[in-house]
Amino acid sequence: MSFGPHLLLATLEGLVTAAVLALTALGLSLVFGVMRVVNVAHGEFFMLGAVLAWAFSTLVTGHPALGFLLALVLSPLVVGLVALVAERLVLRRLNYNPESTIVATIGLLYIIQQSVLTFYGPEARPVVAPFSYRIMLPWFGYSGYKLFVIAASIALIAATWLVLTRTRIGLVMRATQYDRETAQSFGIPVDRVYAGVFALGAMLAAVAAVLIVPIQQAHYLMGLDPLLLSFIVVIIGGLGSLRGTVVAALLIGVSDGVISVFFSPTLAKMLATFLVAMVLVFRPQGLFGTTAR
């Protein structure tokens, strides 16, 4: 294959990464934006979504699309429920103190990860893609499912954006983000908003995981990479900014795809992590964000 098609392939792969990453990072960004806490267990919600997707898809026989659809609906719901319980039992009692929350969510990370290891085992298991249509390009065939992942991610992000900007729920969430105390005195149940946002953030990660699991197998340690990448995206995009998150996910996803085709993936990850740490040191509001209030 010559350079042009090779680059096209790398870009497509990068777009798939970006699509999944944008969804995952959006969840992290929402939680940080509204609740001002960093959820270190976010990657484990992603992993739990993937593992549950495998579990639900094996429940149904027949056409693979049935199992996939079942997983797409149920897996985020269960993950959201787990997040809700964790929020009520732990985060709320900590009064959302940023540092204690980080320590507690590290604990949550190990609890989820190790429970999955106990009940699901150390194997990596695939979920069959709902359809296996291949699009024939002049130079190579490309999986139609991967293009579907990109489309689905765009649709979900658009839906989240609509909810945030056009609905009452979104208004309440934004009000809580701007000023918690004023929102409270205007009768907004801040406490319940927090619980909902935490669950929603986890569900976005779970949806992303269900989408990726036909491409990448479900494994109990798969949560670390999405966590670190989401951190990177959220930091570059500016903490709590939806537009910044999507732009940064595209930037990181596509460049990750392109770089790891042409260079060593370890070096790529190393440089990306280092550069992002530097962004956080020298431009804490992110590359696209504005200064925090």
Partner: peptide
């Protein structure tokens, strides 16, 4: 007797930060 011994690390972290800071 437990393969997932890191589970304890998680439980300990949460209990410490909640009840025994």
């Amino acid at each position: 007797f437990l393969r997932a011994y890191m589970l304890l690390v998680g439980v300990a972290l949460i209990l410490l930060v909640l009840f025994f800071p």
